[in-house]
Simulated scan of single mutants.
Amino acid sequence: MSDIPALYLEKFREHLQKIIAVNEDDFRLISPFFTLKTLRKKEYLLRPPQVSGYESYIVKGLFQSSLIDDSGKLHLLYFPHEDWWVGDFKSFRTDQASSMEIVALEDAVLLQITKASLEELYQSLPVFERFFRILNENSAIALQNRLVQHFSKDSEKKYLDFLKKYPTLKNRLTNRQIAGFLGVTPEYFSLMRKRILQKDRDS
């Protein structure tokens, strides 16, 4: 782990401690299972039909996670960023080809762990299995919330929720990317933003 700067390791430890207790001895056991990965802007972390070989913690950077349907259409799912995990968990667990496309929107730094290393870590430190269980439960809840929002709210409400939940991302994404996430055309998104700004001025 000598190739991973101490600053990155400390950030990772702080992330773990939000869910599980990690003392110095525990972290010395955990950290050697991870490796450092850097990506430049526009580089792909994953694209079909690759198999996702890693679970990746984002130390720095912003990604676009998309799903490609059978017709080849791209559907924007998430914009994983600092202190998130990024990858295709289904592909990672099943060793099946991924249908997801994950690209770096900014230069990025990741801490990665392989499936074999993760299983070994579970054996060495069972509390880490609890960490990943909670992480995956939270991911499932977030996905369900996104589906409910998609089918129950109009585009304007979805955009306002996006701004509230991810206030820093609007300045790191293009209008086209946000429109894709909301499931509307860039033209409609532009009109919608103007309408919202006008409401704010009138209120």
Rank of each mutant, 00 (worst) to 15 (best):
L118I: 04
I196A: 03
Q177M: 09
R93H: 11
K199Y: 09
R193T: 11
V127K: 15
L147Q: 10
E187C: 00
M100V: 05
N175H: 14
T94P: 02
E106A: 07
E119W: 07
Q112L: 11
F92K: 09
K90A: 12
K170R: 13
A142H: 09
F151T: 12
S98E: 06
E101H: 11
N136A: 11
A142F: 05
R195I: 01
R201P: 00
E156Y: 04
F162L: 06
L135N: 10
L163S: 04
V103F: 08
R201G: 02
S190P: 03
S139L: 14
L169H: 03
I102N: 11
D202P: 00
F131E: 04
F189Q: 00
H81K: 07
I178M: 08
V109Q: 08
D202V: 07
T168I: 08
D154S: 06
Y166C: 04
Q96C: 08
F189W: 04
L163Q: 10
L160G: 02
H81P: 01
E187P: 00
Y122S: 12
D200Q: 15
D202T: 13
S152D: 02
V127W: 00
S91G: 03
F162R: 06
L118K: 10
R172H: 12
V86F: 11
L191S: 08
F92L: 11
K199F: 11
E82D: 09
Y188T: 02
R201D: 08
Q144K: 14
E82R: 07
Q149L: 09
K199E: 12
Q177G: 05
L143V: 14
T114I: 02
L182K: 02
K157R: 13
W84D: 15
W85T: 04
E156C: 09
D161V: 04
L182G: 03
L111F: 04
V184W: 01
E137P: 00
K115S: 11
Q149A: 15
E137Q: 14
T185D: 00
N145K: 14
S117H: 15
V127E: 13
M100P: 00
R195N: 09
W85Q: 08
L121D: 05
M100K: 14
L197A: 13
E106S: 07
S99M: 11
Q177F: 06
N145H: 12
S117W: 03
K153Y: 12
E82S: 07
Y166I: 04
A104S: 11
S155A: 15
M100I: 06
Q123V: 06
V127A: 14
T174R: 06
L110I: 05
T185K: 00
F89E: 13
I113H: 02
S190C: 03
R195L: 03
Q198I: 01
S152R: 11
I178P: 01
S91D: 04
L169C: 05
I196V: 11
D95V: 10
Y159Q: 01
A97L: 00
K165G: 08
L163F: 06
L173D: 06
E129D: 10
D200T: 15
D200S: 14
V148F: 14
I134W: 09
L173P: 03
N145W: 03
P126W: 03
N138M: 14
V109W: 04
P167N: 06
Q149S: 15
L169E: 06
I134C: 08
D83H: 08
A140K: 10
S98P: 10
A116R: 14
T94C: 08
Y159M: 05
I178Y: 02
R195T: 02
V86N: 08
F132P: 06
A140G: 01
P186D: 00
